[in-house]
């Protein structure tokens, strides 16, 4: 089980796809000669050449649209966006075109395209570079959206995403690129649509995804010292959401804390809360506790950003308030 950086796990997935499937190519801003803003694609230009590692002009809407065109013509483009906030420039193409074109054509075309982008706050990039728009992508039928929290999941999900015949958005938490984790020597995939029970527990279910997994893991450690055995669930897939794993966990522990590192309002966990209410309300011993980052534009200043960001203390406090423990 070698240790690997999160960014290198993604790179490994890209290299495998480039090696095994000539229809796979990569494009994005400064992914070639520069090596990628987060160095995920560093070295790939030398390895695979400019036809398959395509530097684009700074025209997000257009190179996303070009990816859609290439995909409906039989290729499998993997597109890197320098920030998930930049996806807004191409949102018309992502939503109106990539997600809808199969349905509008009565199933005549499909879009086997992967969009990858760093997401989330925590690295002092201020309001325009710290957002988490995977939350918006969850609403869009026709798209899939995943967010890995470990190098293992990053590799497993990128493998599944590139093989998928539909448009898949891979939101990569920017704070995780330089984190290390183990991957096995044997080939594996992480299926899209399946949540991961990281740790089984009996007293409360803590749900999150992406960088939030670190927060719920630390919360579980704290609760354990107080005799509370928490179950940890990583959603991994945000569209579609794994309702079965969620229901099973809630019905076992009867207590729920949902943690979003994105802004709490309109976040992924709002939808999870709604699903739990619909499916498992009779199993609950108390309210569905939802915790997220503050509903403010992300500030640059370190202390302000830290205050806006959800943390272990706020999760513990919300749990204690919700369940009177």
């Amino acid at each position: 089980m070698p240790d690997i950086l999160f960014r290198d796990a993604i790179k490994l997935g890209l290299q495998e796809a480039l090696d095994n499937d000539p229809s796979v190519f990569i494009m994005g801003e400064d992914i070639g000669a520069y090596g990628g803003a987060y160095a995920v694609t560093d070295g790939l230009l030398d390895q695979y050449g400019p036809e398959r590692i395509k530097d684009t002009p700074i025209s997000e809407a257009t190179f996303i649209g070009a990816g859609i065109g290439a995909a409906i013509a039989g290729l499998r483009p993997v597109i890197e966006l320098m920030s998930i906030s930049f996806s807004l420039v191409g949102f018309d193409q992502i939503v109106n075109m990539a997600a809808n074109i199969r349905y509008m054509s009565g199933g005549q075309v499909n879009v086997p395209m992967v969009l990858r982008a760093p997401t989330g706050a925590g690295v002092q990039l201020a309001a325009t570079h710290s957002q988490s728009f995977e939350t918006w992508l969850c609403e869009v039928p026709g798209l899939k959206c995943v967010c890995p929290s470990t190098p293992y999941d990053a590799l497993g999900l990128i493998r599944s995403a590139i093989k998928d015949d539909n448009p898949v958005f891979v939101a990569e938490p920017a704070m995780l690129y330089s984190k290390k984790g183990e991957i096995p020597n044997e080939y594996y995939e992480v299926p899209i649509g399946k949540a991961n029970v990281i740790k089984s527990g009996s007293d409360v279910s803590l749900f999150s995804y992406g960088h939030g997994i670190k927060i719920i893991s630390e919360t579980a450690n704290y609760l354990e010292k107080n005799g509370i055995n928490a179950e940890l669930v990583d959603l991994r897939s945000l569209n579609p959401i794994d309702t079965i794993t969620i229901s099973n966990s809630v019905r076992k522990t009867n207590r729920v804390v949902l943690v979003d590192t994105a802004r709490k309002t309109g976040g992924v966990m709002s939808e999870v809360a709604s699903l739990i209410t619909e499916n498992s309300v009779d199993w609950l011993d108390g309210p569905i506790v939802t915790v997220g980052s503050d509903n403010v534009p992300w500030p640059y200043n370190h202390d302000l950003e830290k205050k806006a960001f959800v943390d272990v203390q706020s999760v513990v406090k919300a749990f204690e308030k919700g369940y009177g423990v």
């Binding site: 190519f25 036809e51 809407a61 257009t62 190179f63 996303i64 649209g65 070009a66 990816g67 859609i68 065109g69 290439a70 995909a71 409906i72 013509a73 039989g74 290729l75 483009p77 018309d92 193409q93 109106n96 075109m97 074109i101 509008m104 054509s105 075309v109």
Partner: peptide, 25 residues
């Protein structure tokens, strides 16, 4: 015939992708 498209100019980037695929292949 890869569609009529109803967001004004939305089909232009997709057209570039279609021809990119033709060139690639």
């Amino acid at each position: 015939f890869m569609g009529g498209h109803a967001i004004v100019a939305g089909q232009l980037p997709v057209a570039a992708g279609l021809s990119l695929a033709q060139k690639y292949k």
